[in-house]
Design a protein around this nucleic acid. Structure first.
Lengths: 153, 153
DNA sequence: ACTCAGGGACGTCTAGGGACGTCTCATGTT
DNA sequence: AACATGAGACGTCCCTAGACGTCCCTGAGT
Protein backbone atom coordinates (compact mmCIF):
# COMPACT_ATOMS: atom_id res chain seq x y z
CA UNK A 1 0.00 0.00 0.00
CA UNK A 2 1.99 2.98 -1.27
CA UNK A 3 2.13 5.64 1.41
CA UNK A 4 2.34 8.61 -0.91
CA UNK A 5 -0.30 10.88 0.47
CA UNK A 6 0.46 14.48 -0.05
CA UNK A 7 3.21 13.99 -2.54
CA UNK A 8 3.43 14.27 -6.24
CA UNK A 9 0.25 13.54 -8.09
CA UNK A 10 -3.27 14.58 -7.24
CA UNK A 11 -2.55 16.02 -3.86
CA UNK A 12 -5.48 18.36 -4.18
CA UNK A 13 -7.79 15.44 -4.85
CA UNK A 14 -6.74 13.78 -1.63
CA UNK A 15 -7.13 16.97 0.35
CA UNK A 16 -10.56 17.49 -1.15
CA UNK A 17 -11.51 14.03 0.03
CA UNK A 18 -10.38 14.73 3.56
CA UNK A 19 -12.28 17.99 3.67
CA UNK A 20 -15.32 16.26 2.25
CA UNK A 21 -15.15 13.85 5.17
CA UNK A 22 -14.94 16.63 7.69
CA UNK A 23 -18.08 18.16 6.27
CA UNK A 24 -20.11 14.97 6.09
CA UNK A 25 -19.03 13.91 9.56
CA UNK A 26 -19.92 17.29 10.96
CA UNK A 27 -16.42 18.29 11.93
CA UNK A 28 -17.21 21.32 9.81
CA UNK A 29 -20.91 21.78 10.59
CA UNK A 30 -23.38 23.26 8.13
CA UNK A 31 -23.42 27.02 8.17
CA UNK A 32 -20.03 27.28 9.84
CA UNK A 33 -16.99 28.89 8.31
CA UNK A 34 -14.16 26.74 7.05
CA UNK A 35 -10.61 27.56 8.08
CA UNK A 36 -9.02 30.07 5.76
CA UNK A 37 -6.81 29.09 2.86
CA UNK A 38 -3.76 30.17 4.84
CA UNK A 39 -4.68 27.99 7.80
CA UNK A 40 -5.47 24.97 5.66
CA UNK A 41 -2.30 25.26 3.64
CA UNK A 42 -0.38 25.38 6.89
CA UNK A 43 -2.21 22.36 8.27
CA UNK A 44 -1.69 20.20 5.18
CA UNK A 45 1.76 21.68 4.55
CA UNK A 46 0.82 22.40 1.02
CA UNK A 47 0.83 25.44 -1.24
CA UNK A 48 -2.10 27.78 -1.16
CA UNK A 49 -2.85 27.00 -4.78
CA UNK A 50 -3.23 23.34 -3.99
CA UNK A 51 -5.69 24.07 -1.21
CA UNK A 52 -7.60 26.29 -3.58
CA UNK A 53 -7.95 23.46 -6.10
CA UNK A 54 -9.36 21.20 -3.43
CA UNK A 55 -11.77 23.85 -2.24
CA UNK A 56 -12.79 24.61 -5.78
CA UNK A 57 -13.83 20.99 -6.19
CA UNK A 58 -15.98 21.15 -3.07
CA UNK A 59 -17.59 24.33 -4.30
CA UNK A 60 -18.43 22.78 -7.66
CA UNK A 61 -20.02 19.89 -5.78
CA UNK A 62 -22.12 22.42 -3.90
CA UNK A 63 -20.75 21.52 -0.52
CA UNK A 64 -19.43 24.97 0.31
CA UNK A 65 -19.92 28.58 -0.68
CA UNK A 66 -17.12 31.07 -1.14
CA UNK A 67 -17.46 34.69 -0.12
CA UNK A 68 -14.55 36.92 -1.09
CA UNK A 69 -12.95 38.80 1.78
CA UNK A 70 -14.99 36.73 4.19
CA UNK A 71 -14.27 33.08 3.81
CA UNK A 72 -15.94 29.81 2.93
CA UNK A 73 -19.09 28.46 4.51
CA UNK A 74 -20.47 24.93 4.64
CA UNK A 75 -23.70 24.89 2.75
CA UNK A 76 -26.86 24.07 4.64
CA UNK A 77 -29.04 21.45 3.01
CA UNK A 78 -31.16 23.16 0.41
CA UNK A 79 -31.01 26.48 2.15
CA UNK A 80 -29.33 29.70 1.27
CA UNK A 81 -26.48 30.46 3.61
CA UNK A 82 -25.89 33.93 4.89
CA UNK A 83 -23.25 35.23 2.55
CA UNK A 84 -23.93 38.91 3.15
CA UNK A 85 -21.45 41.44 4.39
CA UNK A 86 -22.19 43.36 7.54
CA UNK A 87 -22.82 46.62 5.73
CA UNK A 88 -25.23 44.87 3.38
CA UNK A 89 -27.21 43.55 6.32
CA UNK A 90 -27.53 47.02 7.80
CA UNK A 91 -28.47 48.55 4.46
CA UNK A 92 -31.08 45.85 3.91
CA UNK A 93 -32.67 46.53 7.28
CA UNK A 94 -32.86 50.25 6.71
CA UNK A 95 -34.13 49.80 3.17
CA UNK A 96 -36.91 47.62 4.53
CA UNK A 97 -37.93 50.21 7.09
CA UNK A 98 -38.08 52.85 4.38
CA UNK A 99 -40.02 50.76 1.92
CA UNK A 100 -42.51 49.71 4.56
CA UNK A 101 -43.06 53.37 5.34
CA UNK A 102 -41.76 52.80 8.82
CA UNK A 103 -39.42 55.62 7.95
CA UNK A 104 -41.31 58.24 5.94
CA UNK A 105 -39.81 60.71 3.48
CA UNK A 106 -38.11 63.48 5.42
CA UNK A 107 -37.65 61.40 8.54
CA UNK A 108 -34.27 61.26 10.18
CA UNK A 109 -32.40 57.98 10.02
CA UNK A 110 -30.37 56.63 12.91
CA UNK A 111 -27.05 58.42 13.21
CA UNK A 112 -23.76 56.75 12.43
CA UNK A 113 -23.03 56.43 16.12
CA UNK A 114 -26.38 54.79 16.79
CA UNK A 115 -25.81 52.29 14.03
CA UNK A 116 -22.40 51.45 15.44
CA UNK A 117 -24.03 50.76 18.74
CA UNK A 118 -27.02 48.86 17.38
CA UNK A 119 -25.10 46.53 15.10
CA UNK A 120 -21.81 46.54 16.93
CA UNK A 121 -19.83 47.59 13.89
CA UNK A 122 -17.23 50.20 13.21
CA UNK A 123 -18.17 53.62 11.99
CA UNK A 124 -16.74 52.82 8.57
CA UNK A 125 -19.06 49.87 8.17
CA UNK A 126 -22.06 51.92 9.22
CA UNK A 127 -21.05 54.59 6.74
CA UNK A 128 -20.69 52.00 4.01
CA UNK A 129 -24.29 50.95 4.57
CA UNK A 130 -25.39 54.57 4.28
CA UNK A 131 -23.32 55.02 1.16
CA UNK A 132 -25.23 52.19 -0.51
CA UNK A 133 -28.58 53.78 0.29
CA UNK A 134 -27.33 57.16 -0.89
CA UNK A 135 -26.28 55.66 -4.20
CA UNK A 136 -29.76 54.15 -4.46
CA UNK A 137 -31.08 57.65 -3.89
CA UNK A 138 -33.17 56.45 -0.98
CA UNK A 139 -31.62 58.81 1.54
CA UNK A 140 -29.74 62.09 1.66
CA UNK A 141 -27.08 63.32 4.03
CA UNK A 142 -26.96 66.79 5.53
CA UNK A 143 -23.64 67.82 7.00
CA UNK A 144 -23.88 68.55 10.69
CA UNK A 145 -27.49 67.43 10.90
CA UNK A 146 -27.88 63.82 9.94
CA UNK A 147 -29.31 61.59 7.23
CA UNK A 148 -32.88 61.68 6.07
CA UNK A 149 -35.23 59.67 3.91
CA UNK A 150 -35.30 61.34 0.54
CA UNK A 151 -38.44 63.43 0.01
CA UNK A 152 -40.79 62.50 -2.88
CA UNK A 153 -39.74 59.22 -4.53
CA UNK B 1 -11.62 85.61 44.36
CA UNK B 2 -14.26 84.20 42.06
CA UNK B 3 -13.64 80.47 41.60
CA UNK B 4 -15.09 80.19 38.14
CA UNK B 5 -12.45 78.17 36.37
CA UNK B 6 -13.88 76.05 33.67
CA UNK B 7 -17.27 77.63 33.73
CA UNK B 8 -18.91 80.26 31.65
CA UNK B 9 -16.56 82.66 30.00
CA UNK B 10 -13.25 81.92 28.31
CA UNK B 11 -12.97 78.33 29.28
CA UNK B 12 -10.83 77.61 26.25
CA UNK B 13 -8.47 80.42 27.25
CA UNK B 14 -7.90 78.84 30.61
CA UNK B 15 -7.37 75.41 29.13
CA UNK B 16 -4.91 76.87 26.67
CA UNK B 17 -3.01 78.35 29.56
CA UNK B 18 -2.82 75.04 31.35
CA UNK B 19 -1.61 73.25 28.25
CA UNK B 20 0.94 75.99 27.66
CA UNK B 21 2.28 75.28 31.12
CA UNK B 22 2.55 71.59 30.47
CA UNK B 23 4.62 72.28 27.41
CA UNK B 24 6.95 74.81 28.97
CA UNK B 25 7.46 72.67 32.05
CA UNK B 26 8.19 69.66 29.91
CA UNK B 27 5.21 67.64 30.99
CA UNK B 28 4.61 67.45 27.25
CA UNK B 29 8.17 67.27 25.99
CA UNK B 30 9.23 68.66 22.63
CA UNK B 31 8.65 66.26 19.77
CA UNK B 32 6.16 64.21 21.74
CA UNK B 33 2.52 63.75 20.81
CA UNK B 34 -0.16 65.52 22.78
CA UNK B 35 -3.13 63.55 24.04
CA UNK B 36 -5.89 63.43 21.47
CA UNK B 37 -8.82 65.80 21.46
CA UNK B 38 -11.04 63.06 22.84
CA UNK B 39 -8.70 62.37 25.74
CA UNK B 40 -8.26 66.04 26.58
CA UNK B 41 -11.95 66.77 26.42
CA UNK B 42 -12.50 63.88 28.81
CA UNK B 43 -9.78 65.10 31.15
CA UNK B 44 -11.03 68.68 31.31
CA UNK B 45 -14.65 67.56 31.15
CA UNK B 46 -15.27 69.93 28.33
CA UNK B 47 -16.67 69.71 24.82
CA UNK B 48 -14.38 68.73 22.00
CA UNK B 49 -14.96 72.09 20.36
CA UNK B 50 -13.68 73.88 23.44
CA UNK B 51 -10.51 71.82 23.47
CA UNK B 52 -10.06 72.56 19.81
CA UNK B 53 -10.23 76.29 20.47
CA UNK B 54 -7.53 76.01 23.08
CA UNK B 55 -5.34 73.87 20.84
CA UNK B 56 -5.86 76.25 17.96
CA UNK B 57 -4.44 79.05 20.09
CA UNK B 58 -1.34 77.00 20.86
CA UNK B 59 -0.89 76.23 17.22
CA UNK B 60 -1.12 79.89 16.26
CA UNK B 61 1.53 80.62 18.86
CA UNK B 62 3.72 78.02 17.20
CA UNK B 63 3.91 75.75 20.22
CA UNK B 64 2.43 72.72 18.54
CA UNK B 65 1.87 71.26 15.11
CA UNK B 66 -1.29 69.50 14.01
CA UNK B 67 -1.22 66.51 11.72
CA UNK B 68 -4.63 65.27 10.59
CA UNK B 69 -5.31 61.61 11.29
CA UNK B 70 -2.21 61.52 13.43
CA UNK B 71 -2.36 63.97 16.25
CA UNK B 72 -0.61 67.02 17.60
CA UNK B 73 3.08 67.28 18.31
CA UNK B 74 4.99 69.67 20.54
CA UNK B 75 7.24 71.73 18.35
CA UNK B 76 10.98 71.42 18.86
CA UNK B 77 12.79 74.73 19.15
CA UNK B 78 13.47 76.02 15.67
CA UNK B 79 13.43 72.57 14.17
CA UNK B 80 10.99 70.88 11.87
CA UNK B 81 9.15 68.09 13.62
CA UNK B 82 8.50 64.82 11.91
CA UNK B 83 4.99 65.25 10.66
CA UNK B 84 5.18 62.60 7.94
CA UNK B 85 2.93 59.61 7.61
CA UNK B 86 4.43 56.17 7.55
CA UNK B 87 3.74 55.60 3.90
CA UNK B 88 5.36 58.92 3.06
CA UNK B 89 8.51 57.90 4.87
CA UNK B 90 8.70 54.67 2.92
CA UNK B 91 8.02 56.41 -0.36
CA UNK B 92 10.69 59.00 0.37
CA UNK B 93 13.27 56.30 1.09
CA UNK B 94 12.53 54.44 -2.11
CA UNK B 95 12.44 57.63 -4.13
CA UNK B 96 15.86 58.48 -2.80
CA UNK B 97 17.29 55.12 -3.78
CA UNK B 98 15.91 55.53 -7.26
CA UNK B 99 17.14 59.08 -7.75
CA UNK B 100 20.58 58.19 -6.45
CA UNK B 101 20.71 55.40 -9.03
CA UNK B 102 20.94 52.88 -6.24
CA UNK B 103 17.95 51.34 -7.95
CA UNK B 104 18.42 51.58 -11.69
CA UNK B 105 15.67 51.62 -14.33
CA UNK B 106 14.35 48.10 -14.74
CA UNK B 107 15.51 46.96 -11.33
CA UNK B 108 13.08 45.18 -9.08
CA UNK B 109 11.93 47.01 -5.97
CA UNK B 110 11.42 45.30 -2.64
CA UNK B 111 8.19 43.32 -2.59
CA UNK B 112 5.22 44.35 -0.51
CA UNK B 113 6.00 41.61 1.99
CA UNK B 114 9.59 42.77 2.32
CA UNK B 115 8.50 46.33 2.95
CA UNK B 116 6.09 45.15 5.61
CA UNK B 117 8.94 43.39 7.29
CA UNK B 118 11.50 46.15 6.86
CA UNK B 119 9.35 49.00 8.11
CA UNK B 120 7.05 46.98 10.33
CA UNK B 121 3.93 48.27 8.66
CA UNK B 122 0.79 46.68 7.31
CA UNK B 123 0.52 45.63 3.71
CA UNK B 124 -1.91 48.46 3.11
CA UNK B 125 0.63 51.03 4.20
CA UNK B 126 3.36 49.51 2.06
CA UNK B 127 1.02 49.51 -0.91
CA UNK B 128 0.15 53.14 -0.32
CA UNK B 129 3.82 54.04 -0.56
CA UNK B 130 4.04 52.18 -3.86
CA UNK B 131 0.90 53.87 -5.10
CA UNK B 132 2.53 57.26 -4.58
CA UNK B 133 5.58 56.29 -6.61
CA UNK B 134 3.39 54.81 -9.31
CA UNK B 135 1.47 58.05 -9.57
CA UNK B 136 4.78 59.85 -9.88
CA UNK B 137 5.55 57.45 -12.71
CA UNK B 138 8.77 56.42 -11.03
CA UNK B 139 7.87 52.74 -10.87
CA UNK B 140 5.61 50.24 -12.57
CA UNK B 141 3.88 47.17 -11.24
CA UNK B 142 3.71 43.84 -13.02
CA UNK B 143 1.08 41.45 -11.76
CA UNK B 144 2.54 38.25 -10.39
CA UNK B 145 6.10 39.50 -10.79
CA UNK B 146 6.75 42.55 -8.74
CA UNK B 147 7.41 46.25 -9.02
CA UNK B 148 10.21 47.76 -11.08
CA UNK B 149 11.87 51.09 -11.60
CA UNK B 150 10.36 52.59 -14.71
CA UNK B 151 12.64 52.24 -17.73
CA UNK B 152 13.88 55.45 -19.42
CA UNK B 153 12.89 58.43 -17.24
C1' DA C 1 -28.21 91.13 21.20
C1' DC C 2 -23.99 88.75 21.38
C1' DT C 3 -20.64 85.45 22.47
C1' DC C 4 -19.30 81.20 24.13
C1' DA C 5 -19.89 76.38 25.57
C1' DG C 6 -21.84 71.94 24.93
C1' DG C 7 -22.98 68.26 22.25
C1' DG C 8 -23.76 65.90 18.31
C1' DA C 9 -23.66 64.68 13.24
C1' DC C 10 -21.20 63.99 9.17
C1' DG C 11 -16.44 64.20 6.33
C1' DT C 12 -11.78 62.58 5.48
C1' DC C 13 -7.66 60.43 6.34
C1' DT C 14 -4.06 57.04 8.34
C1' DA C 15 -3.17 52.52 9.84
C1' DG C 16 -3.62 47.53 10.97
C1' DG C 17 -5.32 42.79 9.94
C1' DG C 18 -7.40 39.43 7.20
C1' DA C 19 -9.83 36.75 3.35
C1' DC C 20 -10.16 35.51 -1.36
C1' DG C 21 -8.62 36.40 -6.55
C1' DT C 22 -5.15 36.35 -10.17
C1' DC C 23 -0.80 35.70 -12.16
C1' DT C 24 4.22 34.11 -12.85
C1' DC C 25 7.72 30.91 -12.71
C1' DA C 26 10.90 27.32 -11.21
C1' DT C 27 10.79 22.62 -9.95
C1' DG C 28 9.44 17.98 -9.69
C1' DT C 29 6.31 14.08 -10.97
C1' DT C 30 4.66 11.02 -14.27
C1' DA D 1 6.23 16.44 -23.14
C1' DA D 2 2.58 17.37 -20.04
C1' DC D 3 1.03 18.45 -15.84
C1' DA D 4 0.96 19.54 -10.78
C1' DT D 5 2.99 21.62 -7.12
C1' DG D 6 5.30 25.09 -4.32
C1' DA D 7 6.38 29.64 -3.59
C1' DG D 8 5.57 34.14 -4.02
C1' DA D 9 4.00 38.64 -6.13
C1' DC D 10 0.36 41.82 -6.84
C1' DG D 11 -5.07 43.01 -6.82
C1' DT D 12 -9.39 43.78 -4.45
C1' DC D 13 -12.33 43.85 -0.85
C1' DC D 14 -14.15 43.73 4.17
C1' DC D 15 -13.73 45.32 8.81
C1' DT D 16 -11.81 47.71 12.89
C1' DA D 17 -9.82 51.72 15.41
C1' DG D 18 -8.67 56.23 15.84
C1' DA D 19 -7.13 61.07 14.68
C1' DC D 20 -8.41 65.63 13.07
C1' DG D 21 -11.87 68.72 10.12
C1' DT D 22 -16.37 70.88 9.45
C1' DC D 23 -20.95 72.08 10.40
C1' DC D 24 -25.36 72.73 13.00
C1' DC D 25 -28.03 74.01 16.82
C1' DT D 26 -29.44 74.84 21.58
C1' DG D 27 -28.75 76.89 25.79
C1' DA D 28 -26.11 79.59 29.15
C1' DG D 29 -23.49 83.59 30.37
C1' DT D 30 -22.71 88.70 29.80
Amino acid sequence: MPKRWLTGWRVHGQIAERLRERITTGAYPAGAALPSEAVLSAEFRVARNTIRRALHALEVEGLIVTVPAKGRIVRTDGYVVDSAYRYQVIARDLRGRIERGDLAPGDALPSEAELCWLYDVSRNTARQAFTMLEREKLIVSRHGKGRFVRPQG
